[in-house]
Design a protein around this nucleic acid. Structure first.
Lengths: 154, 154
DNA sequence: TTTGAAATGGATTAGAG
DNA sequence: CTCTAATCCATTTCAAA
């Protein structure tokens, strides 16, 4: 992880669909070298993947919920993640300490849509039981600076 | 915004670097039709951009927790928000349905730091009891469009 | 070990139907 | 929306620093 990798990450954070030529230009590399480094960043796990930034307003999804998931058996985190990946209503998912196996943060159009999405979670993953806390009002949201740690330029 | 657009969004949420051929296959469309729809979704703002998912390990603070807050009496959401505002470790806070009054998402350097921050929550706000679920591993994180990335394509 | 350059196979994109 | 065709890009290979 050097300055070139950081430049690549910054570029691809700004636009995940950038071509290797664009990535290379941002990092001062040829397209083939840029591809090699990007592939390595993905392979080593520094980059977990690439996703679209969907406007929740455009989809009119404004029903939020925290969902505790209690699993049947003990599926691996990887299995759980794979199963949840196809459910776009699941915005975040973590395994957690305590009684529940996982905590989901879900976003849906409305209550029926949320209910349907939770049903989909229950049928897709080896889930025994879920416990939902629907968000009533948002008290505060602080920017998390996920990319902040990487944006320190040399 | 129909089922085809939804399928395109699902595909590109899963992998923003998918080719138009892959997107089209996921949506039952030809590559050129897939490109036209995706371009339109970006142009209308339904998709704000495409970004990489960087390993949170790169962050300085990498201990996360979901904290359920049970209040003494019934403070207003405004009072709660005001009390939590001064605690930087509280990244998100919502009032929720169910037994708990509020759900916090907290971010700290490590477990001692998290414990100290929770103590601070308990002493600052009229909190009766808290129940914490520390994040063990992150299964998936979808950007919520807060990062404000913009495609550089014309 | 990592880069840059060339070649080819496949993807992207505009235009026509 | 599909099809077609021209262009552009991704990916591999290979030689060089």
């Amino acid at each position: 992880m050097d300055d070139i990798d950081q430049a690549i990450i910054r570029c691809v954070l700004r636009n995940a669909r950038a071509t290797y030529a664009e990535i290379g230009k941002a990092a001062g590399l040829s397209p083939s070298a840029a591809k090699r480094r990007l592939d390595r960043l993905v392979a080593t796990g520094a980059i977990r993947g690439f996703s679209a930034l969907v406007d929740p307003q455009a989809m009119a999804w404004h029903t939020e919920a925290f969902v505790e998931v209690y699993c049947a058996g003990n599926p691996t985190p990887a299995e759980l993640g794979k199963a949840l990946e196809d459910i776009p209503e699941v915005v975040e998912a973590c395994t957690v300490s305590g009684a529940a196996d996982a905590m989901l943060y879900m976003l849906a159009r409305d209550i029926p849509h949320l209910e349907q999405a939770i049903q989909r979670v229950r049928s897709t993953a080896p889930v025994e039981r879920t416990e939902s806390a629907i968000v009533l009002s948002r008290l505060l949201t602080r920017p998390r600076g996920r990319e902040g740690a990487l944006s320190s330029k040399a």
